[in-house]
Write a protein that binds this DNA or RNA. Structure first.
Length: 270
DNA sequence: AGTTTAACCTGGGTGC
DNA sequence: TGCACCCAGGTTAAAC
């Protein structure tokens, strides 16, 4: 579920419930996530007030006055707000209980997500070398052009590298490259500045449109759920191998880049 | 040093 | 039905 738009939608869903509230209890039902949930996380968080719920890349930062919980949804994680005392579902590994009785439940079947603690999250090893946010002014085609000089890596892998720009997952890498008319396998170092400007624009457009859609369909987090399909309608190529290209009608092709599935149009993308 | 590959997990779908 | 196999939104760490 979590590409950047869904992480942002998740953040927007839980932030208004969390900010200004104090934490009554933090329950760790299963500490075996990507990294073990620290034993002292409940002690660090309980009784303290949530100042803000922010996002950096795909990390959700739950900021208390004493430090910050760094939460990642991995590949299958989700968070929902629960108003009653209904029993936890399978894979509800972490539960944040607020002083008004609301529960924030973290569910993650594959357990690729994480809950960590840091006094200075921006300096944390996981965050310190991240590139710019794709929707921030520092992210430009010029930046892509400069960072890519001399790089042999495929442009698709290049834009999915968090040190270059954060938040471009497999779905949006496919979509943005199609919009920009760039073949996913083209070497990053051999693409012109003009085409990188087009690519940066395509990344911004794709992500901001998806955030808007995530906001409309996943608005009601209180009633949990928050299942799929919310931007599926607007996908141009991802998951559409063999279907006609939206531009030229020739069948879309599929290949592997790294170990990820890549869908593209062999005619429109060069 | 710069790039690829493997690994962490569960669940859903497919094909035999 | 059952089972073996493949695939999936991410990211790090190990191995070339």
């Amino acid at each position: 579920m979590p590409e950047l738009p869904e992480v942002e939608t998740t953040r927007r869903g839980i932030a208004p419930h969390c900010e200004g509230r104090s934490i009554r209890q933090l329950i760790i039902r299963n500490p075996s996530l990507r990294w073990p949930v620290p034993d002292d996380l409940p002690a660090r968080m309980e009784g303290h007030t949530i100042r803000a719920v922010d996002r950096r890349a795909k990390y959700i930062l739950i900021r208390l006055d004493t430090g910050t919980a760094i939460v990642h949804l991995g590949m299958s994680g989700s968070m929902r707000v629960v108003t009653d005392q209904s029993p936890p579902l399978k894979h509800d590994h972490v539960e944040l209980q607020l002083d008004n009785g609301l529960l924030i439940r973290f569910n993650d079947p594959r357990r690729f997500g994480c809950w960590l603690w840091s006094d200075h999250p921006e300096q944390h090893a996981l965050l310190e070398s991240l590139g710019p946010e794709p929707l921030a002014p520092e992210f430009t085609g010029g930046l892509l052009y400069r960072l890519s000089r001399g790089k042999q890596v495929a442009v698709k892998s290049f834009i999915m590298d968090n040190r270059v720009v954060v938040g471009v997952g497999n779905i949006y890498a496919n979509e943005a490259l199609f919009k920009a008319g760039i073949h996913p396998n083209r070497k990053a170092g051999r693409i012109s500045a003009d085409r990188y400007h087009r690519l940066a624009e395509a990344i911004r457009e794709t992500l901001s449109a998806a955030i808007l859609m995530g906001g409309t369909t996943l608005r009601d987090f209180v009633n949990s759920d928050g299942k799929p399909g919310y931007f599926a309608q607007s996908l141009l190529v991802y998951g559409k191998r063999g279907q006609p290209c939206p531009e030229c009608q020739r069948p879309l092709k599929e290949m592997r880049t790294g170990q990820r599935s890549t869908v593209y149009c062999g005619n429109c993308q060069r």
